[in-house]
Write a protein that binds this DNA or RNA. Structure first.
Lengths: 217, 217
DNA sequence: GTCTATAGTGAGATAGAC
DNA sequence: GTCTATCTCACTATAGAC
């Protein structure tokens, strides 16, 4: 718990507005002039807080991933049945994505865009990638454990990881298209809890090992 | 079946290289100089084929979506049980995505990026959006029909649409991250058929209405 | 720590010769 | 249909006053 007693520093303000802009339009789609104006500063002032646009981007990305990683870290370690641990992990991910609309879009960009837009990547990028790798590894471990223990069907853990990440991250990133499909806001309380329930149920039923005879044509 | 007898026109060549570049780096991340060089032309020559960068982008996007839409259109209409129609639809989508690595990335961008980078959107954009809407509507209809007929659980069709799109499109768009998770290439024959089998099985088990007593805590 | 001024580069787009 | 030359504008980044 940090103490939010002093007014937010310019640095934090810049990160906040940059996060919103990068999430919406990506690294190349955002100009520093725009960031500066939204932060209420002159363009040149940004360079007293960040060495370059690339460093600002990586710092924003790292901040978002760490926020998510800290939320998910305890989920995999709880002393619970593996099905329950998976459901809590999924729930934690969805809560983290639902908290701020910027998170899913920035995360999706980090997942599918190759960061070749920065010639010499700042050190923050490596830290962000490590955080991302830990999150994915944790999910994969839960799935592997569930398959080995017989709690889940004999699914491929990597492919299931891919499906789960895609289903959860894309949903909250889908913006206009997603709102068109739902016929309403993505981040409203009912839409969030509904997606949470639907996705968890989909994987509970989809992964469950069945005792009875199963049609596996 | 079109007759590929004449050598590809400059126009087609431009579209091909632009598709690859836009898929990789997005609208804002690609310069027309780069497109022109890759197509073996001068930068100014592009403007004899396309009015603007925005029009080129929309035309490329429309081409990709129509290619996918034509593949999927017959899937929903086959006179088959709804479970089978859904599996064929998913299979068709995955085949379409696996055919060219550019498709999933361009589609993902169209799904989650708001196209506010073009001030006055070219007419091609509207056509692309219509194609996209038809594909999604078709999937949603299959799901609704399955729920109404009792073949599927009482899932929310919109949320399931979102999950299915995310799981399939993200997977093939995930590039380096996805290859890290799989530990090998995304578009290899075995990886493609494995993901196809895994995703179809996940939704078959995940959506199936169960006859026996079910734990729905 | 924020500003003005500006360097230096590259973008999208146009004009007009060939 | 492709080219060279050029326009205009925005960009990242720096220098240096306050």
């Amino acid at each position: 718990m940090s103490i939010p007693v002093s007014s937010p520093s310019s640095r934090d303000k810049i990160c906040d507005v940059a996060e919103a802009l990068f999430a919406r339009r990506g690294f190349a789609g955002v100009g520093l002039r725009e960031v500066a104006e939204a932060a209420g500063l002159g363009k040149s002032s940004l360079f007293h807080h960040f060495r370059s646009k690339a460093q600002l981007y990586c710092e924003v990305l790292d901040r978002v991933l760490r926020r998510l990683g800290e939320r998910l870290a305890p989920m995999g370690r709880a002393p619970l049945p593996v099905e329950e641990r998976l459901e809590r992990w999924i729930g934690g991910l969805l809560d983290g994505l639902a908290e701020q609309p910027t998170t899913s879009r920035l995360l999706l960009r980090a997942l599918f865009e190759e960061e070749d837009f920065l010639q010499e990547p700042p050190p923050e990028l490596a830290r962000a990638e490590r955080t991302l790798g830990e999150m994915i590894g944790q999910l994969q471990s839960i799935l592997e454990e569930g398959v080995e223990s017989g709690a889940f069907r004999a699914v491929s853990a990597p492919h299931t990881v891919q499906s789960l990440i895609g289903a959860s991250v894309y949903h909250f990133a889908s913006a206009e298209v997603g709102e068109g499909v739902l016929g309403g806001p993505l981040f409203g309380a009912e839409a969030v809890s509904r997606h949470r329930a639907e996705l968890i149920a989909l994987f509970r039923h989809g992964l469950a090992a069945r005792p009875g005879p199963v049609d596996d044509r």
